[in-house]
Design a protein around this nucleic acid. Structure first.
Lengths: 209, 209
DNA sequence: TGCTTCTGAGTCAAGTTGTCTCATAAGATG
DNA sequence: CATCTTATGAGACAACTTGACTCAGAAGCA
């Protein structure tokens, strides 16, 4: 075989995946069929079958093509770092592609092992980074956690996901600050006393109603 | 027409909806087709088409047949009432049917107005009751809220949904207590000082790892 | 008993899915 | 530039699904 450097292959694959992503975003995972994708990509139906014999593989690669949110490596002090990650996460959760992929995580049979694995994998990265960060913050004395560390992903990320997927409203900086305060008592290391404890820039607040 | 008291009609409808619910629970919303449902219900395919001409209507009625979580009317003192509602909500969110319906809320095109309306309707009842309760608790001085009231549904319910849909682990009573404390400062009206502020019975905790 | 109407079985056209074949053109190789 | 290799699009194909329709018969009702 021609390895996978054949420009015809790359061209086809890219056109197909791009079309598939559009379909996923616009019409949901059920619309990502070989036929639909081929038509939109301007490509023969057989070509799609050739590259992705099973529909599941096609949908998987389509979802993998969307850059999903993640947490960067933690940098002390932890609180402002975490505030930034949450702000970014909230913003990315508002993007149509990200929402489409998140919804697609629940497509198909509810307790299909693969589906469960996909959901776990998405949150594993974020939860892992979060755990490391809070661990370190606790050791340095920056944070006195008031909740089980195993619960913090749900407490921190849950509201952001809920806000974007169910309520479909933007996450305010005030809400992020509040969630940060909810996981324990923060001590600004070295600098001034915890006057107001706000880390995310002003300006996005007041988006209520 | 024979009104809708004709036993044949009720029999068919019940058999069909019951079969549809099974399919929804086991294989997801995409499996709720006229053909599948008819086969499982032991009913003619035409009969299903007769009662639900469009697939969407069939799925809607199937979802409506699953008792979804809600919050009862608030009863003072608010904190223990809310703790009970959250405990019940968490338990019901763990049920396969409820998870299936929740997942089905995100089936189809992401920004189809009907889909958005269905999601909003589910949380509207709960958010409404929650708002009323926290309002009253604030007036009576039981609660000094530290977050925007518009954010509390996300802060309170978000983690429970996240825990059940993404993490697929049980919600501990400790987590509920923590979430309650997160929305503000509670004052036990009349009785003893807020020693430990725990309202949900012991016993479900320690379900970590 | 007789009348109404719901039901299951079956038929049918249209569309979808997955597989295969083949001429052609695009790319690699010398 | 000539030749070989291989990905592609078009089309054919059987199997299946979807939605609409017909009809005899059974179930319920008066």
């Amino acid at each position: 075989m021609a390895d996978s450097t054949d420009p015809r292959i790359t061209r086809s694959r890219e056109a197909i995946l791009s079309a598939a992503r559009e379909l996923l975003r616009e019409d949901g995972p059920a619309a990502v069929t070989h036929q639909n994708v081929a038509k939109r990509a301007g490509v023969g139906r057989a070509t799609v079958y050739r590259h992705w014999p099973q529909p599941r593989l096609l949908l998987d690669d389509t979802m993998a093509g969307v850059r999903m949110p993640f947490f960067r490596d933690p940098v002390p002090p932890v609180r402002p770092w975490l505030a930034r990650q949450m702000r970014t996460l909230a913003d990315e959760l508002a993007l149509p592609e990200v929402q489409a992929v998140t919804a697609a995580l629940f497509h198909g049979a509810p307790d299909e092992p693969d589906a469960i694995a996909r959901r776990e994998q998405l949150i594993a990265t974020i939860s892992g980074q979060l755990g490391t960060a809070l661990d370190s913050a606790t050791r340095t004395g920056e944070l006195q956690a008031s909740a089980d560390l195993l619960d913090t992903p749900a407490i921190i990320i849950g509201p952001l996901v809920f806000r974007s997927m169910f309520e479909r409203r933007p996450v305010t900086d005030a809400m992020i600050d509040h969630l940060l305060n909810a996981i324990g008592t923060w001590t600004t290391p070295g600098s001034s006393p915890p006057a107001d404890q706000a880390d995310v820039g002003r300006g996005r607040d007041g988006g209520g109603a």
